[in-house]
Design a protein around this nucleic acid. Sequence first.
RNA 1: UGCCCGAUGGUGUAACGGUAGCACAACAGACUCUGGAUCUGUUUGUCAUGGUUCAAAUCCAUGUCGGGCAGCCA
Length: 602
Amino acid sequence: MTTPSQHTPTPAPPAPSDFIRDIVAAHVAEGRYPRIHTRFPPEPNGYLHIGHAKSICLNFGIAREFGGVCNLRMDDTNPAKEDVEYVDSIMADVNWLIDGWAGDRLGMKPLGATPQAIESNGRKDYFLPPVVGQGGGAKLEPFYASDYFDEIYEYAVALIEKGRAYVCDLSPQDTDSYRGAPDRPGKESPWRERGIAESLDLFRRMKAGEFPDGARTLRAKIDMTAPNVWMRDPVLYRIRHTEHHHTGAKWTIYPMYDFAHCLSDYLEGITHSICTLEFEVHRPLYDWILESLALPRPLPHQYEFARLSLAFTVMSKRKLLQLVNDKVVTGWDDPRMPTISGLRRRGVTPEALRHFAYNIGITKYNGITDLAVLEHAIREDLNRRAWRRLAVLRPLKVVLTNYPEDKTEELDAVNNPEDPAAGSRRIPFGRALYIDADDFMETPPPKYFRLRPGGEVRLKYAYIIKCDEVVKDAAGKIIELRCTADLDSKAGGATAGRKIKGAIHWVSAAHAIDAEVRLYDRLFTVAEPDAAGDFKEHLNPDSLEVLTAKCEPALREAKPELRYQFERLAYFALDPASAPGKPVFNRTITLRDTWAREKQKG
RNA sequence: UGCCCGAUGGUGUAACGGUAGCACAACAGACUCUGGAUCUGUUUGUCAUGGUUCAAAUCCAUGUCGGGCAGCCA
């Protein structure tokens, strides 16, 4: 037995090319920016999912490929929906996904840091540079849009002073009806031409908390007849007497996404602000705000790509939250969830997720990615790293009638045929064994080459056995097989080279350890669960099956950071809920099963 | 039906006016002490109609289909 490792990373695919990277490459070529600077800006109102993983891989991938930086920023402008639990999970998930890959590109900031007043091109300016690559030993934290509320407020005042924003007293309902519709122009607010001094005063009093929620808003003065509804005097600030998870009770007014986001990008010196397609119609507003403020440094620009849609999966945070709240799953990190934490708990590695993200590409086309693409990336990765182990999920007892009662021997078995450096272990063998019930059929169909009455099969790493007798209980259920072993057929033996079509896995009954195994399957039965109607009507009732497996003793030392292949079955990872002597294995993904396909063909 | 965006095999993506390629899937075979992995091969595609051009997936026009936009959400 050697001391092996699992350090056989799947070779990284070549850096991808896509329309956004083409733009960045052109900017690098023309020397447009001193440094490429992207950001990943989730709202802390839920856990990150595999769609976010696509965005993380894009933003950090660009930083990595072009020698830039990617800031992690909490886009926390709506205190009603956000929570520190989500902030913590986001940091953990991002770090897990980029560690050892783009961890050295991660932009954070010193704990408590806020934008510094500086002078740029002879004008007053604010700037908050990143600390890159988490080093230095200093206490760091992610960026928070809410750390910019002072500056954003000041920018709002500047907009009012320029006559480009006004305080509006319209009720939420009236604001809505005045906006018009996509095919119908809006109507100007009666407060639109209110004097600058009056707006300034009212805005100051909004900040002071003098007015109740919804009483007034700050609005940009653009064009109520614009064909793009987001240019119809959009709300910039709203009143919310709500405590914020990061700023506490300091504020009673909060900036809207459109106002805060472009300014956050600017304050951090972002060059390429990459988001999903639904923000495409917001881009004119993004540019309008920054240009109206006549800021002294180069402006960031927004680029949009198609979000990920995965077959048999729901991706909206609202729906995922519903699954959690309705206890359809055990939590955000349930291994059936498409969340990063769920995939991690299931046993998927960061490498597999990154390779998946690379393989699906970046476009502006809203397609649905086949689950097989994800599954392939997972299998490809796990095949290279997972240690092979023998485990029997549905035990059927086998007694070797010609094998001595009291004899035990130990057989050599390699840990990973893909990786000689992974070494080997010994597996105990004895007279009484378990094999999987699926590996025996009394009256098998054609092309079945596992065990059958009178037939032979190879016990992996051990002997060739022949089935002599099928023992049944009173109900006719098969409870035991009585077999004889070809005692010369193990490795090195005289008949070891005999060609036997089938090789099956097994464990020694006397040495087997029990383990709980959780067999996960897709959560939904249809490819597009949220295409129409209630997505919960398409839940897969068999998305989880729990069994007690018989495992080879080496699995007693299973480690949560390692991956295992139960030979001929599936890849498994130890669940964090495991206790000493009470292992729990999550099935990450089954092996490809061409026999199952063959059977289906009938 | 106002504005914006998109359309390449079954799915996802490449080709940037010059041979339609890759991945996944599917199928067939080789190999195999995992019906795994690996290897070989095969099938299937430029939304439509015009135009520009020696040459169009690519440029232009029109149409068709799909997606997005009317939160004081992000």
